[in-house]
């Protein structure tokens, strides 16, 4: 599990490199796919490259995300809370493990609200989601 998490840590860091400043909730209304995207030269973003999740995961040896349509909702088909690799655990670890050296916390504020939204009337924290961008 740790190897997988370390691989995903690289993905997370890569995803973070595409964002240009300290993230705020409104900057990433769709969560993962708002951060993990293509940053082209001249876009004004701090880093350039393809930081979408599919190509990044491919580099780690993860199976092709053939059936994924909505991210990260559809990821829970395999990574449910009851699975050996719950998505929440994986994503939390790659974003917060070794916070003193983790780009997510050191450079981008480590905000929960980048990935989560609050449904205030219901009093429930939600996971932001959006259609895949690959």
């Amino acid at each position: 599990m740790r190897n997988g998490i370390h691989a995903l840590a690289l993905i997370t860091a890569a995803g973070l490199l595409v964002v240009s400043a300290v993230a705020t909730a409104d900057d990433y209304p769709q969560g993962c796919v708002d951060c993990h995207r293509i940053s082209e030269k001249g876009s004004g973003l701090r880093y350039e490259g393809d930081f979408r999740i599919q190509p990044l995961l491919a580099q780690t040896g993860h199976r092709w995300l053939k059936k994924i349509k909505t991210v990260p909702n559809d990821c829970t088909k395999c990574h449910s809370d009851d699975s050996d690799l719950p998505l929440a655990t994986i994503v939390h670890l790659v974003h917060f493990e070794k916070p003193e050296a983790n780009v997510y916390t050191t450079e981008f504020g480590g905000k929960c609200a980048n990935c989560h939204a609050m449904d205030a009337p219901a009093g429930e924290a939600l996971v932001k989601s959006g259609p895949k961008n690959w």
């Binding site: 655990t89 493990e97 929960c112």
Partner: peptide
């Protein structure tokens, strides 16, 4: 105020 006013992340387990 935000999430971490009341929550903290266990960076070893990934549990909020």
């Amino acid at each position: 105020g935000d999430c971490v006013s009341c929550h903290k992340m266990d960076t070893d387990t990934g549990q909020a």
